[in-house]
């Protein structure tokens, strides 16, 4: 599974990355998490409110940091 965290380096973006990694660890799935900090790349996903979470090329979360349990739901 290819997971991207989009964000320009704000506190919430780092939280989202951390929470996502926790969710992956709890689910025990095989996934790579990369951070996208470049404005242009972020915009290419059509995202205007960071942080956002992209799973296999699809934007699933934007503009907020969900709970670990909610991310687990999204990754299943």
């Amino acid at each position: 599974m290819d997971i991207k965290v989009l964000g320009t380096g704000c506190a919430k973006c780092n939280t989202l990355e951390k929470v996502t990694k926790e969710a992956i660890a709890e689910l025990g799935i095989d996934a790579t998490v990369t951070k996208v900090e470049d404005f242009i790349k972020i915009l290419e996903f059509g995202v205007m409110t960071t942080p956002a979470l992209v799973v296999d090329g699809k934007v699933v979360v934007k503009g907020k940091v969900p709970k670990v349990s909610e991310i687990k739901e999204l990754l299943k």
Binding site: C10, F39, G63
Partner: peptide
């Protein structure tokens, strides 16, 4: 509209585009 100053740039780009 919900707004965080940390997304000002993506928002600016998105609007202009």
């Amino acid at each position: 509209t919900p707004f965080c100053s940390c997304s000002a740039i993506p928002l600016f780009l998105g609007f202009v585009e």
